[in-house]
Simulated scan of single mutants.
Amino acid sequence: MRRYRRTLVAVALMATLVSGTAGWAAGSGQQAVGGAPPGSEKWRRDGSLPDPETASPGQVAAFFRTLSPTRQRDLAERHPSVVGNLDGVPVELRYRANRIALAEDPRYTRLAAPGRQILAFDPRGRGTVAEVYGDLLTSRHVAVVVPGSDIDAATYDRSKDPYGTPSGMATSLRAATEGRTAVVAWAGYTTPVGVGLDAATGGLAEVGAERLVRFTEGLAAVGAATPKLFCHSYGSVVCGLAAEGVRASDIVVLGSPGMRADSADALRTDARVWAAKDPSDWISKVPNVELLGLGHGADPAAEGFGARRVPARTAHGHTGYFAPGTDSLRAFASIATGGDAR
Rank of each mutant, 00 (worst) to 15 (best):
A143E: 04
A225W: 06
L204W: 11
P227H: 09
T155I: 12
L219E: 03
G58H: 05
L67V: 11
S149R: 13
G325P: 09
S334H: 07
S159K: 13
S81C: 07
A120E: 09
A76S: 01
P166T: 02
T16V: 13
R110I: 11
L294P: 05
T16K: 04
A298H: 10
L292V: 14
T326Q: 06
T190H: 01
V89C: 07
G202H: 10
D74H: 13
G317E: 04
K160S: 15
A22L: 14
A331M: 08
S68W: 00
A15C: 10
P311H: 11
T66V: 00
L212A: 08
Q117R: 13
K42V: 09
S81P: 07
R5A: 14
P90V: 09
R44V: 03
T155W: 05
V222N: 08
H296E: 10
L17Y: 10
A143T: 03
F64D: 01
T70Q: 15
G235R: 07
D157V: 07
V238K: 00
A209R: 08
G295W: 05
G125D: 14
A220P: 05
E92P: 10
L229N: 11
R342V: 15
H232S: 13
V213W: 10
Q117Y: 03
D150G: 04
G297T: 02
G223F: 04
D150M: 01
N288D: 12
D250A: 14
P166G: 03
R330S: 15
A307F: 01
E217A: 03
S236A: 11
V193Q: 13
E217D: 13
A275G: 11
V146H: 10
E92W: 04
S328N: 08
G203N: 14
A36F: 05
H318V: 00
A315G: 11
G218E: 06
Q59V: 09
R260S: 14
V246K: 02
V132F: 02
T138K: 12
A154M: 12
R308L: 15
V33I: 14
P311T: 14
R110W: 12
A261M: 08
G23H: 11
A103G: 08
A153S: 13
G179E: 05
A175M: 05
T21A: 06
P57I: 04
L241N: 00
G168K: 00
V253C: 14
V238A: 01
P279A: 02
H318L: 02
A271R: 06
L119K: 02
A22N: 10
T155F: 06
V83E: 08
A62F: 05
T326L: 04
S56K: 07
L212H: 06
Y189N: 08
E92L: 06
A10K: 13
L102E: 02
R126S: 15
P69I: 11
